[in-house]
Nucleic acid binder design. Structure first.
Lengths: 340, 340
DNA sequence: TTGAAAGCGCTAACAA
DNA sequence: TTGTTAGCGCTTTCAA
């Protein structure tokens, strides 16, 4: 029933009574081959149970139409929507997408850059805050890289991002308008740009409202649920008082709320919370999370578009800035003891 | 500063004053080369800024030490933990892992099987309920495939899974012990094995307790949050009464709870809920979700181990069954109107 | 321990 | 429209 497995283009050519070039053409550009010839080839392909060896083709072409999407932490649902956008745009452009997990580890970023150098893939879409410092001054020898969501200071690469500072400022302003003045900030890991930009937005809103800034209200974490829990535990145990939280990720917001609740503090009655990202769980959560929505799908699409440009030889370092939106749901309430 | 980019093994050989074979050996099996020669080669590699073309090597070796992990829906956090297990075991065995998204689409499964046939990867770990039916009778011509979590009836492939039927029965029994008799079941998509097995466990528990079974209490969905919402909306609108829900995924459980709450029905006070998977959000959710924990990391590790065996020529179709655990948290309460 | 040489399967330039 | 042919960069016998 099943024919020989490892048949190659030569066997097919022999079977069809044509040259291997014709087989290749019939398969790659059918309209360049006369219909009768095409039919002979297709029949032979079927008869030989032939599956072209994509590896050989990629090798010959010196490209394999594949890009790697490397994310900070594959456990964060935020990246999955991005992936979908990337994959959609990639499919349209004839590319495949593989997803890699950097696990917040700079070395793993370096490993994946090497994979591109070694032609495992044609390009790398980076969604990690980390970048191997030893590569920073080798910008001209880097393989095709596009940055999404994050930025790497001192590296002029095509980038798609949001205005983190403005989005944060807007979110914190929302808290201030509800009467909050003691606002904690669950930041990302410094000194990454993303963390710093959101932190600056937080400070902007504070100073705009004439509210004093306090170091003690800022805690950093790696955007995970666990980090959110830990941050709140630390804050509470150190006795700092606060009535609102602005978290740099929905996961941290969710961890924070869970921790708060575990200690008998209710959200939003006692403490208001705003997250960041609008992951799919934000809306199903109790209370439904007020958060900053990022246009994830579009971010993915744009990043892939930038990659296609780059792969086609465009050497600019364009930066695309996408809009965000504050999605007001149920995790913010008026401050009960304003100006306490 | 930066040297020529696309240097190849020939240049390095010339630079080092040795043959290309020696360069290859120095890089692949350093101990087969005299230390002085090795040093010459390494110096030349550095000088030429040489990065071996992995594509060429893979092509020559006819294998690339890469496996694809194809999941049903990359948006479900359940798969991310699996991925971590797979990647860990893969790293130890010298393999790379790429993750693909089947989007509940049989055609995309076929596409990925083709990728392996075309040598994009050495093997495929399948976590999809779907399998292209036209390939079912070609088991002997299939590339290396391992099934995880799911099963494909009529296909004898190495598999790692849990005892879905027993786990479900145990979960539903927990509901029954709390006094519930009107228990809805949010099932996966029939006729997939996974959905059927969990459904059978549900029926087992019911009949064991002498509770009658009603078709109307069973609704199917694709394991997503949205499916959970829709299922509950349908149930409520058709006027069926129920006091508990056994959902086939945490995401459906979360969607269900969110929908219930939106309609003023509280969990667990009015309705008790049990989920399946124990995703990372289950514990942070309000109420913390009682659910069936799957040993995801281990499942991933075992699946990869099976793949390594298979790639090493082992041709058995071993099935490994892993243990589950009912994690009791806060989403189940005693039935307030038992035997209503 | 090292080198020469064949060739993995395919694409694409060129010729017919 | 089709065929001939030269490699892509590497690994791996086999011989020295």
């Amino acid at each position: 029933m099943s024919k020989e497995q490892g048949s190659n283009i030569r066997e097919v050519a022999a079977l069809a009574g044509v040259s291997i070039a014709t087989v290749s053409r019939a398969l790659q550009q059918p309209d360049k081959v006369r219909p009768e010839t095409r039919k002979k080839v297709f029949d032979a392909v079927r008869q030989a149970n032939f599956v072209p060896n994509a590896q050989a083709a990629s090798f010959r072409r010196q490209s394999n139409n594949t890009v790697i999407l490397l994310v900070r932490d594959i456990g964060n649902p935020f990246y999955l929507e991005i992936y979908k956008g990337v994959e959609e745009a990639a499919g349209e452009a004839g590319f495949k997408v593989l997803m890699g997990d950097a696990r917040n580890d700079e070395n793993r970023v370096a490993t994946h850059i090497d994979m591109v150098r070694q032609k495992h893939a044609d390009g790398l879409i980076l969604m990690t805050g980390q970048f191997p410092s030893e590569l920073l001054d080798q910008a001209d020898t880097l393989p095709p890289i596009v940055i999404a969501s994050e930025t790497v200071p001192g590296l002029a690469l095509p980038t798609v991002k949001i205005d983190n500072r403005a989005a944060s400022k807007n979110a914190v302003r929302h808290l201030i308008e509800a009467g909050h003045t003691k606002i904690a900030h669950l930041a990302g890991p410094f000194p990454e740009s993303l963390a710093k930009e959101r932190f600056e937005g937080y400070r902007d809103a504070l100073s705009e409202a004439g509210i004093g800034y306090s170091d003690e209200l800022v805690v950093t974490g790696d955007y995970s649920i666990e980090a959110g829990r830990r941050a709140i535990a630390g804050l509470l145990e150190s006795g700092i008082s606060f009535t609102a939280i602005f978290a740099s990720s929905d996961q941290m917001a969710i961890g924070a709320i869970s921790e708060l609740r575990g200690r008998g503090i209710s959200v939003p009655a006692d403490v208001s919370v705003i997250g960041f990202d609008d992951i799919i769980f934000a809306n199903a959560f109790e209370p439904p999370l007020t958060t900053v929505r990022q246009p994830r799908q579009e971010m993915g699409r744009k990043a892939m578009a930038l990659m296609v440009d780059r792969l086609n030889g465009k050497r600019t370092a364009e930066t695309i800035v996408l809009d965000t939106e504050l999605v007001v749901r149920g995790s913010v309430a008026p401050c009960r003891s304003p100006h306490r």
